[in-house]
Design a protein around this nucleic acid. Structure first.
Lengths: 392, 392
DNA sequence: CATATTATCCTCGTGTCACGAGGATAAGGG
DNA sequence: CCCTTATCCTCGTGACACGAGGATAATATG
């Protein structure tokens, strides 16, 4: 019935219900009525519609106390699926997600070669197989990569050792949507949705690996910027202007908070395995090596000072730390706290935004990719498309 | 009909039409049909409903060419009004805005005393008078202030010389909504809606006055942060860590880009009239005073370097400059451009986000306050409320 | 001046949606 | 075995967006 407003408006309540499902894995109809302020008749109608559209199925709920037993809502066994992918240097990981956001069928693939061609071929083959196995159900692929993302393409990646790469061929020739995001930013999304900073209106995620990434998340959505490169917080010039960053700028914060910074402070050559080197220095510091302790303290100071500056600027409800930032802070928690507080504007000090360790560990990027991907599958438009494709 | 979804869903299309009106002052019905993808029957129905609700009125359109003449849509003469207010050091300004976003009845009031009590009393009286004059039409007051805003209150203001002030008594005892925002941030909103960065998805506004304010704007909405203090970009620690900022932190960018920085570079005492001092130094530099030129160059460098860092981090489509930033840049445009480009990540340099002078001049904050205030009046909920209050 | 052309508007009937009221249903509790 | 409690379902209502097709009002043309 037309391509106007009505076609998508129809699915507005349905989209809300599916959004609710993401954060409440097995809700009852009564839960919907209570939390979404629906009438029970609307709940009946909406769930019925979602069932007919093969988006939801219902199963009897285990009874608990008096009252008529209700049913639990869950993704339909023939419902849409999302493929979440994370590309790392040494391996790729992927998993499937249904409309409840739970990851399943997780696989890890060790790269026999780190070349983008090889990774692309592997992932393309994976998509082909999964499409075959779940005919028609696979609707989108959402990829997290340790790279600068711009207009849906990877621009450069120090971590992967890649130049510009277009990953969209993974789904070329299919009807799947394809989404790319920066891994640190997506990890922040996961934290803001279901992790350390869950239920905060605005959050800041800081993930240290090679450099520092992450960024701002408002209401679960990342600040992506104009072209998708809106989480490159490591390239704020908070550092030493005499240092040149591989990104092309000078004085980047990136250079002050990772293994490269530790090596510089220890007057050693920049290591090839920057992350492994950092962990070794942290171990030396833990065992009392004073030089290592001093180097770690300088890096923790840079991390805390920048964190405070970003809190001043963007006023997040809470901050989450990921990757190397977690052991860095716990190597000198008091120092971090002191520098953090001293870097805050006075009015922030009464109740500084808490700085929390990430809850998703190294699965954050995959969870974030799934979250963003499922957002795309549960828009009113996407639901209308799914329904039309099933009934046509 | 209930307090559920339906009550507000009804007004969804209406809200879209009123949003359209904000950026297209006198649209025809045919414009609506074309741009909002409505059917002509829907346009008839929606405009009819909005007319009955005293939100829109129609007037015959001047004919131009063939075809049946159409009507122009405009705010209803008995429709809702917003009061936009800007509080400055020496004066307050206010204006009324209808649903088309046009400001009218603008007034300026010179403060006989800069005390908050005096300003509050003046504005409270203004609200009382306007409410009397436009009985029932005045629905909200939206205030822009040169202060740090937090949870709807002013926390501190170096410019105004105020400590914490609660401005909400302005509308106490009325049914008016009250909204406060930082003036620089709201000026950024105005630029992003109808000014230099109009039609950009994400924009960055930099307004130099005493310190630097502004912030990020996505799709016309400012990044307000958790408590509303999300535009304090001047308190990023991009500067000299040995300098203490009145905000409580050290090394703030604030201290590098305004009259205080110029005075420091000229080895003079920090002036009381920081803005006036800055303009005087700019005049000296323009007339060839080499010391002044050097000082201006240092400030322009700090401004351009920070701008590049924020572009790296947040990837805006475009940047707008306001206040003192405009004459600063034009005092050394080549220097600004060079430092700006050199501060960008390589992949940004092919097409750097343009840095544009603000289009609204010193009316930006007032326009931004009006824009945000009208947003509140045209939500589906607010429209439902307005309708119910008119028909009850 | 009459007719054709063009653009816009309106009316009617249809399909869909959310909802309230009130009855039906299914457990546990006494 | 009936009552209580909680949930679900059916029915009727009011509202919305839309397509089809006719009506309307200007300009253009002869």
């Amino acid at each position: 019935m037309s391509a106007g407003i009505a076609r998508t408006v129809r699915w507005r309540a349905a989209a809300e219900v599916l959004g609710y499902l993401r954060h409440h894995p097995r809700p009852t109809r009564a839960d919907l009525v209570r939390d979404l302020h629906l009438s029970s008749s609307s709940a009946t109608e909406i769930t019925g519609r979602l069932r007919r559209a093969r988006l939801l199925s219902e199963e009897p709920a285990p009874t608990s106390g008096r009252g008529r037993p209700t049913t639990l809502l869950r993704p339909h066994p023939d419902g849409p699926l999302l493929l979440a992918i994370e590309v790392r240097h040494e391996q790729s990981r992927w998993a499937l997600a249904g409309l409840d956001g739970q990851l399943h069928d997780m696989h890890t693939h060790q790269h026999s070669s780190p070349d983008p061609e090889h990774v692309l071929a592997t992932l393309t083959d994976t998509v082909r197989q999964l499409r075959h196995r779940h005919s028609g159900r696979l609707r989108a692929a959402s990829l997290a990569a340790a790279a600068t993302v711009r207009n849906g393409q990877l621009v450069q990646s120090a971590t992967l050792g890649w130049g510009p790469v277009d990953m969209s061929p993974i789904t070329a020739g299919t009807d799947l949507s394809f989404i790319v995001g920066n891994d640190a930013t997506l990890a922040g999304v996961a934290e803001a949705r279901t992790g350390a900073t869950a239920n905060t209106r605005t959050a800041l995620h800081l993930l240290v690996d090679v450099g520092i990434g992450g960024g701002l998340i408002a209401d679960g959505r990342p600040w992506t910027g104009a072209t998708g490169a809106g989480g490159e917080i490591g390239h704020l010039p908070l550092g030493d202007f005499t240092l040149h960053c591989p990104c092309g700028a000078t004085g980047c914060w990136d250079l002050e908070v990772d293994g490269r910074a530790l090596a510089r402070h220890l007057r050693q050559d920049s290591p090839t395995d920057i992350r492994g080197y950092a962990y070794r220095v942290l171990a030396h510091a833990a065992s009392g090596d004073t030089d290592a302790v001093a180097a770690v303290h300088r890096v923790v100071t840079a991390l805390a000072r920048g964190t405070a500056g970003l809190v001043n600027t963007h006023d997040p409800t809470a901050v989450s730390l990921g990757g190397l930032a977690v052991p860095l802070r716990s190597a000198a928690p008091h120092l971090f706290e002191t520098v953090y507080r001293n870097g805050l504007m006075t009015f922030h000090r009464q109740q500084p935004p808490p700085v929390l360790d990430a809850a998703h560990g190294d699965l954050g990027a995959l969870h974030g990719a799934a979250a963003i991907g499922l957002d795309h599958l549960t828009t009113e438009t996407a639901l209308a498309d799914w329904h039309d494709s099933r009934t046509a």
